[in-house]
Design a protein around this nucleic acid. Structure first.
Lengths: 211, 211
DNA sequence: GCAAATTAATGATTTATTCAAG
DNA sequence: CTTGAATAAATCATTAATTTGC
């Protein structure tokens, strides 16, 4: 029990770090900018990429009042997704329906739907499935372990799902009902939302052929 | 400390939950109380998502599994990224320069640059760093293991990097030269490339209902 | 009753492992 | 065998529940 606090303390310490970023970063600062628009591929100096201060999550650092006074509520980029009950419900429904690792397209759709109930991004959906799956499995394992001690009522597999009498549906009882491997080939792209972000249209602004 | 942010009570609905809160704390009712339908959002029937076949016509689509590897259909264009020498060179340079897990923005830029030498996507860059890092570490471990037998010259920690004599920089010798933690907060989004022609996206029948 | 302090959940990242293309 | 791609496991970090002292 007590061990939990340890890291919290550590975190606090690190978080302090007012602006001395150079101490423990591997990114060499320097070369603040080199506004050189450049035109030639040639050099490709990494300074261009390595920018010292990219968007550190400075949430609530005592003086955020001045920038982006707009929606303080939804909190710009700083906070993590806090799912609403509706969203959770839908996600669980999908999970119970058998969905485990939705691909990009599905995630997009799910996100769109869930977006009606609250702010959400694709990655939230992705992570949710990852975490939920992992934790369900964990739970299962723990349970089965505990059961091993007391093998009573083994039938209590709790079939977890069955809401759908459609065909098979492979309920996938305990034991990592997951398929071994799917090689899904999800396609994704990075999006760099600087700071303003905040808009809802940030779903996928950068298209490969954009340039 | 100061995070006393008033959490918006955007929830509420089911939160009240008068009497169902027995033992299980975290279990949510899951029973949508909102029978209102109230136009608009409506019910969110998952059929919308779980479309057994409506969407992208799977190539094989016999669904019956045969379970042939899904990614087989393999886009004619190319299966996986095949980096050119220039690309590899640049990536290695960046790696040696200290970059280990670039954030979204950096990946975007790197991709843009490397794109001049050949087809490439952001995820390729991402994966490259992941793999390279992991495999370098692996190699290190193997080496150090061999060395452990012969603890001679312990100083040979091979500081992996040190090109920068700036202070700190904490080279972190062997043993996972990685920084402890950085919490980069990369933001990414999914991109759904339609099936223009026959891209991938069909893979994954959304819940193995094909049985 | 209420906030601060703790604890439990869970979102977000990173690391390890695995599979398969070439 | 090398290595790109993908997933699972481990871990960090933050938010909500609870507990606790007033």
């Amino acid at each position: 029990m007590g061990s939990m606090k340890v890291h919290q303390l550590a975190r606090g310490f690190w978080e302090h770090e007012p602006s001395l970023t150079l101490g423990c970063k591997r990114l060499r600062p320097l070369a603040p900018k080199l506004a050189n628009t450049d035109t030639t591929v040639t050099a490709f100096d990494l300074k261009t990429f390595i920018r010292p201060e990219s968007g550190p999550r400075k949430l609530g650092s005592s003086d955020d009042k001045r920038n982006s006074p707009q929606q303080v509520e939804t909190h710009p980029g700083g906070t993590r997704w806090n799912p609403t009950q509706e969203q959770i419900g839908i996600l669980e429904m999908l999970y119970r329906g058998g969905m485990r690792t939705p691909n990009a397209q599905q995630i997009e759709q799910i996100t769109a739907q869930l977006g009606k109930y609250g702010k959400i991004e694709g990655k939230n959906v992705f992570y949710w499935f990852q975490n939920h799956k992992a934790r369900e499995r964990q739970k299962q394992k723990r349970n089965s372990l505990g059961i091993s001690h007391c093998p009573r009522t083994p039938a209590a597999s709790f079939t977890t799902i069955s809401l759908d009498s459609r065909q098979g549906n492979q309920v996938v009882p305990e034991r990592d009902g997951d398929s071994p491997y799917k090689r899904k080939c999800r396609s994704w792209s990075f999006e760099c939302l600087e700071e303003e972000g905040d808009r809802t249209l940030e779903l996928f602004p950068l298209h490969p052929e954009g340039r």
